[in-house]
Amino acid sequence: MIRQLLVEPYQLGFMRRALLEVVLLGVLGGVVGVHVLLRRLTFLTEALQHTVFPGLAVAFAAGQSLLLGAVTAAAVTIVLLAFLTTRLRIDQDAGLAVLIATFFAFGVVIVSRRTGYTSDLNQLLFGRILDVDRRQVVETAVIAFVVLVLVAVAHKHLVLVAFDRAQAEALGYRVVVLDLLLNAAVAATVVVAVRAVGTVLMVAFVVTPAASARLLGRSVAATMAIAVVLAGVLGWVGLSASFEASVNQGLRLASGATVVAAFTVGFCVIGAGTQLVRRLGARRGLAKAAL
């Protein structure tokens, strides 16, 4: 039964590639996601996934590489955000909202110029994880490897900056360079992930496993490890569930959304579990104090 659910679907080549892609994104998202939470960059991640949309749309319309389009749009976003917040002194959140609105609207306008645009729109918004080809998996692997190496090398410094910015500056670290490195890592993660899971669900790969792990992990490294394992396992379960429902039960479930739903269920279970343990612990503590 379990074998039929969790193993057999992957005898098909496209399911194998999809699983590989999900696991790669899970590893990348888990590690980068912990940094995102430490630095409170959730909104930036959310904004980036929407602002790369016009890049995808233009590349799609022009028949160019989606990756190239997404990278360009992400770079433009970060530059414009810096301009809005520093030169025009606009609140970071408000600036991000403006960028989301403008970029996303631009993408919609471009896509809507094409006939039969709804299916194109859907592909760009939700990705087609089952259509991932070998080249895309290789690209994801290479980018993930580079980002992970960079983040690992700078790990100690990134954690220090997240914890105590002033201290890091006083120690002579180039805080701006570290900021840039982290923003670039987030942008790279967003860019590779949006191709597979689209520009609205991608944020879950970064935020949800990391947030679940945060409830369990005691150190930054442990949190990362838990996030990576969670993302891999839940991604596997989600993908299998969508396959089983769509193929054997006749209930079509979008695969990307099912994976994200699995992440969310995992988060809810862990959240409820830790709350329960804390409550029980508190009660036991009170009982002990009463004795």
């Binding site: 959310e46 669900l201 988060f267």
Partner: peptide, 11 residues
Amino acid sequence: IGVVLAGSFAI
């Protein structure tokens, strides 16, 4: 907010 956002959209 991030967790809730992505989760409910997936639903």
